[in-house]
Amino acid sequence: MIELAIVEDDEAQAWLLHRYVERYAAEHGADIHTTVHGSAEDLLDNRAKAADLVFMDIQLPGIDGMEAVRRIRERRTDVPVIFITSLAQYAIEGYRVHALDFVVKPVSYSNFEFKMTRAMRAVQREHGISVVVRSDDGLHVVETRNIRYLEVRNHDLIYHLTMGELRTRGSVTERERDLLDAGFVRCNVCYLVNMRHISDITDDGLVLDDGTVLGVSRARRRSTMEAFARYMGGAC
């Protein structure tokens, strides 16, 4: 189930968005639980830790939406936020707090559906999926979010995890097909990398969040950069 929070002090707008979420869930077969908050303080006090996705009005009484997202980002960098605004120029400032997108009032369902589909991809990417890995000591169910990268070495396929590693037989190419939609990119013949764990890209290669540096082949550099740009934009 996806936990979605709407923060909107205008009751009519909040009701409209809630109805749009219900319609979207019905049409797309999504399991979404929605909570509506009339102020940013209410979200920060009650639901910010649980929310998987936030629709945030910018112009709110008390703490405005921009400041609320700054506070959320101090604790959580992963939750996608879509700003609701009557002024499009606020969008530029929104990207400074890593907002996924924005919608301009009055919100039409077609526009909402487009933004929501993009947001759901981002949420599913953050949640990740699970894969089954067969190693010498049995079967392991591994969440993709816990895989930093896969490496082929001496005919072994090594899963480098956030906690340890697993070795199995297989090829990177086989797993690439399975993990393409889970936010992984093939940066050379040896490595398949989870882009959620990339912290920087330098001339030396991809720098992961544990300090590991993985080389990017010349042939795959452009495609790797393009894939990472799409990932950061929430398009995959």
Rank of each mutant, 00 (worst) to 15 (best):
L179E: 01
M163C: 11
T224E: 00
F228C: 05
R218Y: 14
G205I: 04
V213Y: 06
V207P: 09
L192M: 04
Y231K: 01
V189E: 10
L192K: 07
R230V: 05
H197Q: 03
R222M: 11
L208H: 09
V185G: 06
V189D: 06
L192I: 04
V185M: 09
M225Y: 06
L166E: 08
Y231G: 00
L208E: 06
G183R: 03
I201Y: 13
G233S: 10
L208Y: 13
A219E: 13
R230K: 14
D178Y: 14
R169D: 05
F228P: 02
S217D: 06
N194Q: 02
L179G: 00
S171M: 03
T224R: 06
V216Q: 07
Y231M: 05
Y191I: 10
Y231H: 10
V193E: 03
L206T: 08
L166T: 01
N194L: 00
L180Y: 10
R221F: 02
Y159G: 09
V185T: 13
L180Q: 12
Y231D: 03
G211S: 09
M195V: 06
V185R: 07
A182S: 08
L179P: 02
Y191P: 03
H197D: 03
T202N: 05
A227F: 06
Y231L: 00
M225W: 12
Y159T: 07
R175Q: 08
C187R: 09
I198L: 02
L192Q: 02
R177A: 13
H197W: 10
T202M: 05
V193Y: 01
R222P: 02
N188D: 13
V213G: 00
V207R: 11
V172S: 01
A219L: 13
I198E: 03
A182F: 00
G233I: 08
D178L: 15
F184R: 05
D200G: 02
R186G: 00
V216Y: 01
S223A: 15
G183S: 06
